[in-house]
Design a binder for these strands. Structure first.
Lengths: 208, 208
DNA sequence: TGTACATCAGTGAACGCGCGTTCACTGATGTAC
DNA sequence: TGTACATCAGTGAACGCGCGTTCACTGATGTAC
């Protein structure tokens, strides 16, 4: 049996998660920079002072959100990249994976896209650090592909970064289609597919 | 002689521009979503109520900032794209152009990168609309290049979007190097150059 | 050119409100014996 | 198992403060004659 939390700790974690969830919800319509501690506690239904039992500030809460949001993006990016090598079919499946992830965790995607260049430094840095880790992982995965024979490390990392950025851009575009007329989603799918294809073509002819 | 403003209108425009400039400065450390009207007027040295003579709200001011910021990005993107076709030299010059633009207008670049996915809807929409216009322009420019012979319109627009996004990402990376150890700038230059090169390679073999 | 009136960018006082933070507290949970 | 004490997540009152917005105002600039 794994470690079981006491009643007290379990309740504390539950409240903490409720604060994180409420914050994520409130961040659909504003930036972390303007998120108020009282807003968050009000949404959860606890006293404002309870906030301090879990976080020093909303910036601190933001850093915690980065881990949760990128924890969910992590498997998506890994799967997408290992899928998106070259064949038409596999690229199409990769784009579908991104679309499904946006459907499953829209608030996470929005949070990362918004705060990646947002006004709260510690959060920005946490996101950059995690994305850099992702790029390293993608690089390692690319390195095992036969297409990468003859590539040096810098170029592999460059390509990995291109994939990670491209995935975030595409995810962000899918997010916008949630409140857009039907058909927009298909358009985004087509554009994203062709962009991945162009990168794939460049990759195959890199050493020509 | 061009139209000369009266003293009153000239002074009004001066104050308006002072408000825009002050806001842009304050936005280096926060998002528009948390920018206060009183902060801005305090920085300029006018009464809070003077703000309403120029803007309905900080969101309204943000939309005005979009025009100014993208007005400065406009020539940069045009020149970069018309430069970045294929040859090694021209790609290198395009990346230099981006770096110089970031040096010249760091606050504009930061503002666009931050608010493109930021928490203020009208500003987000204004940025998306302008970037879409840029992509159309880039598409028109690409269409005249012999390399684009045989390309359909959708694919040209897809490539144009890829260039625009890539430029913003690169500009944003250069921005970060302003407070980073020397050498970071060279690293960003090298990575950006190779990413443009990979896109260029993909472009040349697109119809293979 | 001079005069009388209109315009309107910027003022300053006042308002009600929600903010972040402090503090001493309560009462359920945890621990030692 | 039962008792006595310690811990600590969440409370609720209180604070000083800066916010956005209203309003009637002032005085330099603009306009009509």
């Amino acid at each position: 049996m794994s470690h079981t939390l006491g009643i007290r700790q379990a309740q504390k974690q539950k409240t903490r998660q409720a604060l994180l969830d409420a914050a994520l919800g409130l961040l659909e319509e504003q930036s972390l920079s303007s998120l108020g501690l009282r807003e968050v506690t009000r949404a959860v239904g606890v006293a404002p002072t309870a906030f301090y039992r879990h976080f020093r500030s909303t910036a601190d809460l933001g850093v915690a959100l980065v881990d949760q949001a990128l924890g969910s993006l992590h498997p998506m990016i890994r799967t997408t990249v290992s899928t998106a090598d070259d064949s038409e079919e596999r690229i199409a499946r990769a784009v579908e994976l991104i679309a499904h992830h946006v459907d499953a965790y829209p608030a996470h995607v929005r949070f990362i896209a918004r705060e990646r260049h947002g006004g709260v430094q510690p959060v920005r840095e946490a996101i950059q650090a995690q994305l850099a880790r992702f790029a390293e992982e993608v690089k390692a995965e690319l390195a095992e592909d036969p297409v990468s024979a003859g590539w040096n490390g810098d170029d592999l990392l460059m390509l990995a970064g291109l994939y990670v950025d491209q995935m975030l851009i595409t995810a962000s575009l899918f997010l916008e289609t949630q409140e857009a007329p039907a058909g927009e989603r298909e358009r985004v799918t087509r554009v994203a597919t062709r962009q991945l294809r162009l990168i794939s073509v460049g990759r195959h002819h890199w050493l020509d």
